[in-house]
Every structure is written in C-alpha cells, then in structure tokens.
C-alpha cells in the first residue's frame, strides 16, 4: 500500500455519492442516497459515516444507526457490507480499519447491514448477532471455577500447538463469515472457537460435549449449512482459515461416533 517510501502518504479529498440502507425493526428497508463532499483520504470509513451523520443531524434529520466501538479492528462490533462485500474491498481489515484512501473521487459507495437470516436488522446498519453468544453459552468454554486453577506452568504446551490455538482464538466474532455466505453458515466462527479450545490440553475433558453442543445450538439459532463455498475465509478480517472448519468436522464426527457407541453400549448393558 505504500506508494512512496520517501514522503508521508499525501492526503487528498474525495467527493462521494453514498447509497445507505435505512430500516426500522420489523419493517421493510430501502436505500437512501446522499452526496458527501470533502472526505479526507486519511479518514477511516466510519469517520466518513460520522461526517454524513453530522450533516444529517445539523439538517434536523436522523442519522444512520450503525454498530461500532473500538475502531481499531478488535472488538468485532462494526459490521457494514460495503459495495456488496462484508467489511469492504480490502482483505484482512474490519470496516473501522478501512481507510478512505482505498476509494476514488466521484465513486458511488453502497452501504448495507450484514445480510443473513440469523442476523435480523435492528435498525439501519445494525443487526442482532446474539446467536453467536448463544453458541458460546452452550459450550464455547472450559469449565473452570475461579480459584481452582493449577499452577500455570504445570502443563507445558508445545509452542506450535499454542500458536495454532492462538491463530484460531483471534476471531473477533464480527459475523462477516455469516454475512458473506450464501447459506448464512456460522461454521467459520464455530470452527474457530472449537479449534482454539480443542487443541489445548485444558480443553480435552470437554472436547466432545463442546463440539456437539455448539453445533446443535448453531443449527437451533438459525445458521445455515456449510457447502464449502469458502466466501467466509475470503471475508474474514482476522485471517481465520477453512482449516478450522475441517477441524470442527473432524471433532464433530469423532464425537458423534463415540456418542453412538457409548449409547449402544449402554443399551446393550441395559438389555442384559
């Protein structure tokens, strides 16, 4: 992205046309068009949206509601589909870390909420992602009461294992994977959490229950099936890869097989 190593990247300003989604909860939505002048290329996408909203407020109109908080790519709250792409055109960044130097003067930019059955629109660009929390509540944890932990260095963990767990743990729960998938599948998100916890020695005791419970909840809250399209990986701002889905499938199958045998085993014993 650095064009010139010998000077600071020069700022210029853009004039833009924006098509932004307006919607109230439970009602149909539509695009609204606005012109916005004088946007600095060093501004972030959300700062550009702030400028638009400030203008609307000064004109006595309601601003567009959108989710955001940290504005540094880590909280996972921002969630805009920009020109049809969750988090916009630049790979590996969230909406809040996308900067206006990636757009051209005179460009028309379309801004929509995440589109997925399991993420209903609450208002304008804001959606309800509580399905993700429900999946975690059903098993995305290691059961450890405060105060009952053993000494931290008692269990060495090979660096490559720990690094791989960390790779998966970097997921920020933004939902771009679901929004980019034509089936609205949450496999990348769920796979990331299962991989993180199931790779670690601490995660072993609950390995099977975890994966079974999380997959069941994932289906219950309305996420779709995975048909290996790979769009999720392409739009994940944190570089979570399809490997986590393979891991999830492997652990899930293993757990199902074990559950099957232990239940038929029990049935046999019971029948004796």
């Amino acid at each position: 992205m650095v064009k010139d190593n010998h000077s600071h990247s020069a700022d210029s300003v853009l004039n833009l046309r924006l098509r932004v989604w307006r919607q109230r909860r439970g009602q149909p939505g539509a695009f609204e068009e606005h012109a916005l002048q004088g946007v600095s290329t060093s501004a972030s996408f959300l700062e550009m949206m702030d400028m638009l909203n400030e203008k609307l407020v000064r004109d006595g109109k309601e601003p567009f509601a959108f989710d955001h908080d940290c504005r540094e790519g880590i909280c996972g709250m921002c969630s805009m589909t920009i020109n049809g792409m969750p988090h916009g055109p630049l790979p590996g960044v969230t909406t809040c870390q996308l900067h206006m130097r990636n757009f051209r003067d005179g460009e028309t930019i379309t801004v929509e909420p995440w589109r997925a059955r399991a993420f209903p629109v609450l208002r304008d660009l804001m959606v309800d992602r509580s399905g993700f929390d429900k999946v975690i509540q059903s098993g995305g944890f290691i059961s450890i009461r405060a105060g009952s932990a053993p000494e931290a260095n008692a269990t060495p963990i090979a660096k490559d294992v720990s690094d791989a767990a960390m790779d998966a743990a970097e997921c920020i729960g933004c939902g771009a994977c679901v929004a980019s998938c034509k089936n609205g599948s949450a496999m990348l998100f769920v796979g990331a959490k299962v991989t993180h916890l199931n790779l670690l020695p601490q995660g072993q005791p609950e390995r099977d229950r975890r994966v079974l419970a999380m997959v069941r909840t994932m289906d219950d809250v309305g996420f779709g099936n995975c048909t290996n399209q790979g769009e999720c990986q392409a739009h994940c701002p944190k570089g979570i890869t399809l490997d986590v889905i393979s891991h999830l499938n492997r652990d899930y199958l293993g757990a199902r097989v074990k559950a099957f045998f232990s239940s038929t085993g029990k049935a046999r014993r019971g029948g004796d």
Binding site: A149, P150, E151, A152, N153, A158, D163, A165, H196, Q202
Partner: peptide
C-alpha cells in the same frame, strides 16, 4: 500469580517458549 493460573486454565493462549512454558 493466581490470575495467570486462572487464565491459562481457561485456555488463554499466552505466548510460549519452545520448551512449552510461558
């Protein structure tokens, strides 16, 4: 010190050395 124990038990992937220790 108890905080580090607690977090490791929860599965927090702290950086490790090649020997597997924190």
């Amino acid at each position: 010190t108890a905080i580090i124990d607690q977090c490791v038990a929860q599965g927090v992937p702290f950086a490790r050395e090649y020997g597997g220790l924190l």
